[in-house]
Design a protein around this nucleic acid. Sequence first.
DNA 1: AATCTTTCCTGCCGGC
DNA 2: TGCCGGCAGGAAAGAT
Length: 271
Amino acid sequence: MPELPEVETTRRGLLPRVAGRRIRSIAVRNGSLRWPVPADIAKRLSGETIRDIRRRAKYLLFDLGKGHLLVHLGMSGRLTLLPAGTPARKHDHVDIELEGGTLLRFTDPRRFGAMLWLESPAESHALLKDLGMEPLDAAFTGQALRARAKGRSVSIKQFLMNGRIVTGVGNIYASEALFHAGIAPGRSAGRVSAARYDRLAEAVRRTLARAIAAGGSTLRDFASAEGRPGYFQQRHAVYKREGKPCRVCKTPIRALRQGQRSTFFCPRCQK
DNA sequence: AATCTTTCCTGCCGGC
DNA sequence: TGCCGGCAGGAAAGAT
């Protein structure tokens, strides 16, 4: 499941290989993604040059000058570079053929992903305009987090996963960051101290940065014939470790549900 | 067969 | 009153 580090790894892997290249054609095999792939997508993209790839939250934005191609990987999406003419398999929904014989292929078994055309400026699009802080930006600080949390009763874990507050912190990293910051996941966001918000912001930043670094080390795979993106297994502190000993204090890790999502935590290390 | 995954959307609630 | 923000719950598809 692509979280922010995987999306960023995909961006970094693709950028040097597609920047400056023209799009020859687009083939939409199955356009029923989270939203229908626009019927005129081929008209919009054909002949345009990919100038840059940016990332906002977990959205990838391919800058085509006149507008942007937005791609979201959803839960099971993947972008891979392949030689033109590679036969499509079951879940290969969209092919973008670049000049020079390369195929940029979108694969997504569960089809929670998205592929849309955005007029410039992309930031004013409904999907992007209300997004919160980027966790890797300098503006993302404990102080900024705490200011947004003032008076809010929602749990700190759900607060952290709210994209209007911070973007790109999914279920795994929310549990992991709270563990590293020593904060119990059920605590109200409005009742977390300034010092602990500082620790939390740092934990979020460090956890994501470490995962991106790990992904970067697998970029070679991304460029291989297999075309696998830079997914990687992380050694989690608490995620999916229910009943197993805490790596710090040996207390069994516990699980609970918050907003229909699973949360993992150490009852001794997190208060 | 229920569970798990992301995140947008709908609708309720209370405050002003 | 009507509007707003906060918040909970539902929905989508497919693998296991």
